[in-house]
Design a protein around this nucleic acid. Structure first.
Lengths: 146, 146
DNA sequence: AATACAATTGAGAATCTTTCTCATTTGAGT
DNA sequence: ACTCAAATGAGAAAGATTCTCAATTGTATT
């Protein structure tokens, strides 16, 4: 419990890659590791910098490609921060949504999804078959309010 | 009712600009008009094209600047589409959220905000002072399901 | 352990998006 | 009409993302 890095296990990740006939490369593992070790959403440039610390020489394009792959596998999520920029984080277990601290960018996940309850009603009311939703909350965390 | 363009009235808009000591320019009015006339969220390039049809010679930078101004005034909202690109639409009256059709990009607003009910509870649970939220639904509209 | 092959990578070019600069124009108050 | 600050157009600049292609590297097979 003291170390949440590779919570899914390195072998777990390896299997996920192999199941999709993707190679398990050190670059992909490093990108994931960097995100797992971070408490906050990270921008591309932060990720690139941290990955290069683990694996010098890693190119920016590879970071983009690895993130796309990880997103495709459902291991990582891409979020839109308020300033319009993109950032990335490990995908939460189950269906959850993030609360992003507007001061420190730290992220807290919350499990209760209020959409579940109203989706069906909404589908009836609007005639739209709801497929998906995107929800993020913004606020000030305990540390930053103090 | 047959024409919802300038629902706020041209004079209303003029007053909003003047109250903030901003100039009421044809470029800004055109950008807003283009969005009011559209049923869907529009990308920068669509907006630019449509604005140029109304006001030839309008520069792209001006469209960006006008949108920023309109967002700042609360007249327009910027949204994140699933492909990661930004688009823009007139801001809905009151507190509403959009349902975006994944096929045709058309937008339907819905008024019921499920966050109101749970925000307070969430603040207590997490210790985070919730300030804001971003919610979008995606689905297939009646026309596109058929 | 060595081999072969397709997938992946690094590097930089290319593209796309957004912002900036600055000379010129224009809205709005006088 | 006159003045002045604000806004614009054009293109440069900056930043973000994707593409290209030769070289490298996982993985399955021997």
């Amino acid at each position: 419990m003291k170390d949440k890095v590779f919570a899914k296990g390195q072998d777990g990740i390896r299997d996920i890659f192999h199941a999709r006939k993707l190679k398990c490369t050190p670059q992909r593992l490093s990108v994931f590791k960097v995100l797992e070790e971070s408490e906050t959403y990270l921008s591309i440039n932060s990720i690139h910098a941290k990955v290069k610390a683990l694996l010098p020489g890693t190119g920016l394009a590879t970071v983009y490609r690895s993130l796309d792959t990880l997103i495709d596998l459902g291991l990582v999520v891409k979020v839109h921060l308020e300033d319009g920029c993109h950032s990335y984080a490990v995908a939460p277990e189950g269906h959850r949504h993030p609360i992003v601290c507007t001061e420190c960018n730290r992220v807290i996940e919350f499990a209760e999804c209020p959409l579940d309850k109203i989706s069906e009603k909404l589908s009836k009311d609007t005639g739209i078959e709801i497929q998906n939703h995107f929800l993020q909350l913004f606020g000030k965390c305990r540390g930053c309010s103090a």
